[in-house]
């Protein structure tokens, strides 16, 4: 497998996970950008744990995910039921604080970051890359399954009801604070997990990665794909990350402008994004029709 393909597939998986990390709290209308700070904190934690303490990959992955969840859970006590804009600003502030601390701490490599992260298995680099891709896509499957279960349970319906009408949801007995705490913790855990996997894909880490650009890209993937279902991100992330890579270099450098224009256009023309619930049910009905017709023909 070429390095280019490895990085495309690896980073696409990270974008899917990160966009899902934002999608989960947005189920109840909260833009929880703290997940980017969780990603940075867990990635740096993983780098230190691997290089200085000699922790194995699996332990680092579990600890990094739990660390993300812990930070998200603590913050959620204050912002679990806060309005969207307060959650946004807490996320931005934590990103800025994390970046400043990293850039000014020599033990974390300062502005240059940390390099020479070891492979997760003994053997060739190619074998290591294959194993990493298998793990990251297994994680995508696992997280996707958990979100699917959540979306199709009472929790998902409760989150949707908060998104549509918070007061009505409260009247129906939905505990907005508890729901916010659960969704924010879940999103932060995925942010932490993405950070650890990002570290082992790149085998280096720098504070420059965790910027407002990353938020912009994930937000575009979520809103263009469609924020009402989990499937939009799954399609939009690889496409939006991949298409600029095959464009001429002069166009590639305008990637963020293209994302920005796309984000604005989709919000104006198709506010719920391309993959919506009615769109999915239409497709599922068509598939059922085709399948039933085949069965009827056989009979």
């Amino acid at each position: 497998m070429s390095l280019t393909l490895f990085y495309f597939l690896g980073i696409a998986a990270i974008y899917i996970l990160m966009s899902w990390a934002i999608y989960i709290p947005y189920r109840m209308g909260q833009l929880h950008f703290m997940t980017v700070a969780n990603m940075a904190i867990s990635a740096y934690f993983a780098a230190v744990a691997t290089l200085s303490w000699g922790w194995p990959f699996w332990l680092v992955l579990i600890a990094g995910t739990l660390l993300g969840a812990l930070i998200g859970w603590i913050a959620s006590f204050a912002i679990g039921d806060a309005p969207c804009f307060a959650v946004v600003i807490v996320g931005f502030t934590l990103i800025y604080l994390t970046k400043t601390i990293i850039e000014n701490t020599e033990a974390l490599g300062g502005p240059l970051g940390i390099f020479s992260i070891p492979k997760i298995i003994e053997g060739t680099s190619a074998a290591n890359r294959h194993v990493i891709l298998i793990i990251v896509y297994l994680l995508v499957l696992l997280v996707g399954y958990l979100i699917y279960r959540m979306d199709h349970s009472r929790l998902g319906r409760a989150a949707s009801s908060i998104f549509i009408d918070r007061e009505l949801a409260t009247t129906f007995g939905v505990n907005v604070k508890k729901m916010g705490m659960f969704l924010q913790t879940f999103g932060s855990a995925i942010g932490g997990m993405s950070g650890v996997m990002y570290l082992f894909i790149m085998r280096a880490i720098s504070p420059n990665h965790f910027t407002f650009h990353l938020i912009g890209v994930c937000m575009t993937m979520l809103f263009v794909g469609g924020y009402t279902t989990q499937w939009g991100v799954l399609i939009a992330a690889p496409l939006l990350w991949g298409i600029p890579l095959i464009l001429p270099e002069s166009v590639q450098s305008w990637k963020i402008v293209i994302y920005g224009v796309l984000l604005i256009s989709v919000l104006v023309v198709k506010p719920e994004g391309f993959i919506t619930r009615p769109f999915l049910s239409k497709i599922s009905h068509r598939i059922q029709k085709i399948l039933f017709k085949k069965v009827e023909d056989k009979i």
């Binding site: 912009g216 305008w254 994302y259 919000l267 104006v268 506010p271």
Partner: peptide, 28 residues
């Protein structure tokens, strides 16, 4: 346009649009 389309004012959507405008201007 966003406000008209949503029937009632959707403040979250206007914030996301504003972020998109910010992305375009900053990168330009």
């Amino acid at each position: 346009h966003i406000m008209k389309k949503r029937g009632s004012v959707d403040i979250n959507a206007t914030m996301v649009i504003s972020m998109g405008i910010g992305m375009v201007i900053t990168d330009y």
